[in-house]
Nucleic acid binder design. Structure first.
Lengths: 202, 202
DNA sequence: TCCGTATGTGAAACCCTATTCACTATGGGA
DNA sequence: TCCCATAGTGAATAGGGTTTCACATACGGA
């Protein structure tokens, strides 16, 4: 019965709610995501949300899932559009920068643990999502090593985490400074440094 | 009058409250920091807090100030204990790793924007605190350049932000994974890579 | 056409929050 | 010794949060 209910429960509405939630979080931060606001954004009354999700935690889970999808999407797109490891990473960096400057809070949310909230069991899911992403990045690096583009003596995983480190503190700085921090410039110089690191002969 | 009140308002109590708040945030995250919990931690009734702070925002400001002090403290200590730029950065990294693994949430808080909350005016203070810290790190780098230890063609500020990038995403991973992520190992390999970056001849 | 189910509504319940206020106790300077 | 500013108390307020429930509505298949 619950199975059939899940199937009937029009999936579009569920998605619409999750996407509205992500939109609100992008705009105002997670702390201000209340069911009243979310309902208003969707155009319904708060209690209506309970027709589609059992509770707020389930909605947050859906948001996390949405974020996971967006991340995979980004990596797959640069995979299709670029064909060397370094240019893929470069494109991914540009994409991240653009995400941040266009008010997309995904990187901020992902690395702030805010989304864990009270639900300790969501911590595991968050770790999984981040870890998956790191592993995708590590694959890019490893492929670059196989192709001789990247020096073979670096740990792909460490390189991947460091890659995130290029953009993530900068994102916070940018946001905290109200856009005064020159994110693009930082990304450019940091990327140059990073690329040299990966390609230098040991 | 307000001046004398500030002076009389036994500073120890104010500090005690701020430190208790930081302790609670370290333990349970910012979202769970309510005045009731804080009062309980201090050993007092919620309304008593208003004898020392005008409102909750003022307490959060004090916490931010406390964090600022801790950060300066750390940099100054490695300045005294080490005398080359690279070993200072190395020691600082170790110190950050230790802070994280010993449940000190300072890096997480600082880079999560959580503390900004509703008070938009605190965003400026947060940016200031982070920027100060970056500038201190940049000074370390610049001194290393002056001493010939670090290649002169990197931007000290970018290098400083990247330094934060070594530890900060790793901190999240570590915390999200419940300690399964090998933070120490990552710090070691990332540091090696980073150091090579800074010392490589261009 | 009609029925049943899924979806939406509006009100209420309940909890936790920050904050205010009148009151009590206490301890250091006159 | 006494007094008064100061710290702490406990109750009350207002507001917002999530969640539940009884009721209305509308739509798709028989």
């Amino acid at each position: 019965m619950s199975e059939s209910k899940d199937r009937l429960d029009s999936k579009t509405r569920r998605d619409e709610i999750a996407e509205a939630a992500l939109r609100l979080v992008n705009r105002d931060g997670l702390k201000k995501l209340s069911l009243s606001r979310l309902a208003a954004e969707v155009g319904v009354v708060p209690s209506a949300l309970y027709r589609h999700y059992p509770n707020k935690d389930a909605i947050l889970d859906a948001v996390l899932e949405l974020i996971r999808d967006r991340l995979t999407e980004h990596v797959e797109r640069v995979r299709k559009e670029h064909f060397s490891a370094l240019s893929r990473l470069d494109a991914l960096l540009a994409r991240h920068v653009q995400m941040i400057t266009s008010q997309q809070a995904i990187p901020r949310i992902l690395f702030s643990e805010e989304i864990v909230g009270d639900a300790e069991e969501r911590r595991g899911r968050l770790a999984e999502v981040i870890h998956e992403h790191v592993m995708r990045l590590a694959s890019l690096v490893a492929e670059g090593q196989a192709g001789g583009e990247i020096r073979p003596d670096v740990s792909p995983e460490s390189a991947a985490v460091m890659f995130l480190g290029i953009v993530q503190p900068a994102a916070i700085l940018w946001h905290a400074s109200g856009g005064r921090f020159d994110l693009t410039e930082h990304a450019r110089t940091a990327w140059n440094l990073y690329r040299e690191c990966l390609t230098a002969k040991s």
